[in-house]
Amino acid sequence: MISYILRRLSVVIPTFLGITVLVFSLIHMIPGDPVEAMSGERGMEPERYARLMAQYGLDRPLPLQYADYISRAARGDLGRSIVTQEPVLREFLDRFPATVELSLCAIAFAICLGIPAGMIAALKRNTPVDYGVMGVSLAGYSMPIFWWALLLILFFSVSLGWTPVSGRIDIEFDPARVTGLMLVDTLLSGEEGAFLSAVSHLILPMVALGTIPLATLARMTRSSMLEVLGEDYVRAARARGLSPLRVVAKHALRNALIPVVTVVGLQVGTLLAGAILTETIFSWPGIGKWMVEAIHRRDYPVVQGGILLSATLVIFVNLIVDVLYGVINPRIRHTR
């Protein structure tokens, strides 16, 4: 088992290096630079431009900048934001809880609806129910998030007035920041109505962000379930006269869920990518919105640090899933 974990870990370091090279070259390949981004329509004397580029260390050759960056990143120093002059790590940590809260709720939403929907579709295969579930999930999977989010806002907030349009909480509440998770902080503050306000603000972004994972999970559960339902042991269980519910719940579902668990782990990447759009639309102060603004302002340290930290998260979760998978399924540990 330990050698298995070590094998998995040995892949992590090259992956990291690859990501840093990629991010570093991509962000510098995008036209423009932070100094130009500051000046707008106004002209800037070439001397001053050069001085500012030098101040941010952007006048040196790229490989040199990269080497410098990587050596400092290895020591845990991700630099400072060019715009705010705050350490990148602190800026990240300030915003990370908002993204975690949104992502966890979105994945919970996806699991709670997606897995039962996939099961039902599998059990009612080739009936209108099946076609309905699969049709809806295909639509959900294909829906551009920003458009879907705007539709949700227009319908539920503007037309019906059921949910607030955007933000994390009504402006009359200003709970003290303890964990950074609004649901937890409002409970801790004990202020009446604050928690409910936070919940109502969470619903639409949760649905918008959770739709793609939901559709993925529903389809995955359905196909995995169908496969298992065709296995001999399921047929045997039925033959022994077990109730259909018992067959599905006890014998089929557990085995069908093994690949689904992996997919849940893989959704972390999808969630972080989706968070960029979801957070921008719902004015959700997480890392997605932060990175978008940093890209606009060509705030290189923030973009590099933000992607590096997000990538760390994805790699870490995948590592855990890999390890868990090894625990669940011993065959994987031994072959490789």
Binding site: L150, I153, L154, S157, V158, G161, P164, V165, S166, G167, I171, T280, I281, F282, S283, P285, K289, V292, E293
Partner: peptide, 17 residues
């Protein structure tokens, strides 16, 4: 209330947020 998307700002003015 920092709201980067113009359509969302419009929705917020319409609902009175």
């Amino acid at each position: 209330a920092i709201t980067p998307d113009a359509s969302v700002r419009l929705a917020k003015v319409k609902t009175g947020e």
